[in-house]
Simulated scan of single mutants.
Amino acid sequence: MKARVTVTLKAGVLDPQGQAIEGSLRGLGFPGVQSVRQGKVFDLVLDGNDVAAARAQLTAMCDKLLANTVIENYAIEISN
């Protein structure tokens, strides 16, 4: 089973890397970009076919390692 975890900063948390990307895009001739928020994507391959168990395991992974839940949100997508 395949899973994708997307981790992004919570609203209100400063994102200096996103701001740097925004400035660079403008400098490269893309003036229509209003704002950029950067994040992380993790693609995982898991054993088994139990989607509920996989979601529980992925949630634990995010809470313990993949995301800093004080300042980051995460979203989990599972596919077969």
Rank of each mutant, 00 (worst) to 15 (best):
R26W: 13
V41R: 12
M1E: 07
T69E: 09
D50Q: 04
A52S: 12
K10S: 07
R37K: 14
R26K: 07
S79D: 11
V45F: 07
L66H: 06
A56G: 12
R55W: 04
G23T: 10
E72N: 08
P31L: 00
R4W: 10
L25R: 02
I21Y: 07
D63H: 04
D47M: 12
D47I: 13
A53G: 14
Q38I: 13
N68K: 10
D15Q: 03
T8Y: 14
Q19R: 14
A54L: 09
F42H: 11
M61I: 03
A56N: 13
F42E: 04
V41W: 11
D43G: 03
M61P: 15
T6V: 15
I78K: 07
K64C: 03
N68C: 00
N49F: 03
V36T: 01
A11Y: 13
G29H: 03
T59H: 09
E77Q: 04
L65C: 08
G12D: 01
V41N: 06
L28W: 05
V36I: 01
N49K: 15
L66T: 07
A75D: 11
C62A: 03
F42R: 00
E22H: 15
Q57N: 12
A53Y: 14
A52Y: 08
P31D: 06
Q38P: 04
D50A: 02
V45N: 08
F42L: 12
L25P: 03
M61E: 06
G18C: 02
M1Q: 09
A56P: 05
E77T: 05
C62T: 00
Q19Y: 06
G23M: 10
C62S: 02
I78D: 00
M61F: 14
L9P: 01
T6P: 05
Q57G: 12
T8D: 13
L28E: 07
L66S: 10
L65H: 06
V45P: 10
S24D: 06
D63T: 10
G32W: 11
A54Y: 11
I76N: 01
V45C: 07
